[in-house]
Design a protein around this nucleic acid. Structure first.
Lengths: 111, 111
DNA sequence: CTTTATTATCGTATATTTGCGATATAAGAT
DNA sequence: ATCTTATATCGCAAATATACGATAATAAAG
């Protein structure tokens, strides 16, 4: 039981879900907000602004990296993270495409 | 260990993360797509279009309900689910707000 | 009232996520 | 070379999520 059936869905569905998953934790939303507020690439200031241990924040950063939402240059002791704007744009489009579909149909919906 | 620290973030951060979480599974994306394609409120046709057991689909529907992404009228044997367009609009706005922030700052970003 | 069809819920097994402390790593400072 | 600072990774414990079969619940049909 509890087999992983995720591969049985289309690639687009998996991609969208993966993107959503990357944002599916308040800590990661907060990280993105921090990265958005400061326009220079900050490193461990993220840790200070979050109520989490450094190792946990590092883990969340890694997840955002893997999902392609941010990019980071690990320059020795202090690393530098930024929003990967391209990925955001791409997924925003896919979201809006879904939204568009929903909007049209919704007008005829019953509940 | 592994305490739930989610409450330590702002309500907006939690809401956005909750919305994302609801979409963080390809099955739930697929369900939303089905609901979008057919403009009448369908019930168990969702089950047929997914590679999952009925109970599993029901669970996913419940999650979408709890997150407020869909609304359902449980009319006896056959229930009826629809997109909750308002919630989508709300979160789309919050997303776009985040996007806007990112876009402005990103032009000065370094990596 | 009994049967049938549809959906929800329960119990359970497994997988994944979250979180921390401890430890490793890497480069600059002393 | 050693110390300091910043980050990443490992190992583990607890919490959540995923999935199914079995079972309950509900209302219409017979």
């Amino acid at each position: 039981m509890a087999f992983n059936k995720k591969e049985e869905f289309t690639q687009k569905e998996q991609d969208l879900a993966g993107f959503a998953k990357a944002m599916a934790h308040p800590a990661r939303i907060a990280i993105l907000k921090v990265l958005a507020q400061r326009n220079e690439c900050i490193c461990g200031e993220i840790v200070e602004s979050l109520p989490l241990a450094q190792s946990t924040v590092s883990q969340h950063l890694k997840e955002l990296l893997n999902a392609g939402l941010i990019s980071g240059s690990v320059d020795g002791p202090r690393s530098c993270y930024c929003i990967n704007w391209k990925a955001f744009e791409k997924f925003n489009q896919e979201f809006n495409f879904l939204f568009a579909n929903l909007k049209v149909k919704n007008e005829k919906a019953c509940c």
